[in-house]
């Protein structure tokens, strides 16, 4: 397994920035997410997390700092949360933090829905 590093770009703002680090288990997705063929973009991220929970089996911290994600992206994020919930249920050490803008109350509702749908606890952190 290798790290995943995807830089954001002003010309393609619909792709998020991604940093998945195998050495410390910190995974970060930030920016915006409303690309075409959403599943094609997220599949390597989903597989990376699956493999991490099966092979590395160490602490995993997922930090989501998305300002906006379309509904197709929410389905992929839900897939990731379901994998993490399964990992946690099997004894894995996992934490999910969702950074949000206090002026975007719709995002708080979205995170609540993710918690209910996945069963995974998500810590909301307000961006200062």
């Amino acid at each position: 397994m290798e790290n995943i590093t995807l830089q954001s770009s002003q010309t393609t703002p619909y792709f998020p920035e991604v940093n998945f680090n195998i050495s410390n288990g910190i995974c970060e997705i930030s920016g915006e997410s409303y690309m075409e063929e959403t599943y094609k973009f997220y599949l390597p991220l989903i597989n990376w997390i699956k493999n991490y929970t099966k092979e590395v089996k160490k602490k995993l911290e997922l930090n989501i700092k998305l300002i906006y994600l379309n509904t197709s992206s929410t389905k992929c994020i839900l897939d990731i949360l379901e994998i993490l919930k399964d990992y946690k249920d099997k004894g894995g050490n996992v934490a999910v933090n969702w950074y949000y803008d206090k002026d975007d109350p719709d995002m708080i509702d979205e995170v609540e829905d993710f918690e209910v749908e996945s069963g995974m606890k998500i810590d909301l952190i307000e961006i200062k």
Partner: peptide, 25 residues
């Protein structure tokens, strides 16, 4: 609507079909 959204997203096959909740949203 919130209930519909949750059910629809959970039951969507995903992949190329997305979450199928755009109109609800």
């Amino acid at each position: 609507l919130r209930q519909l959204k949750r059910e629809q997203r959970l039951n969507s096959p995903g992949e190329k079909f997305g979450a199928r909740i755009g109109l609800i949203q």
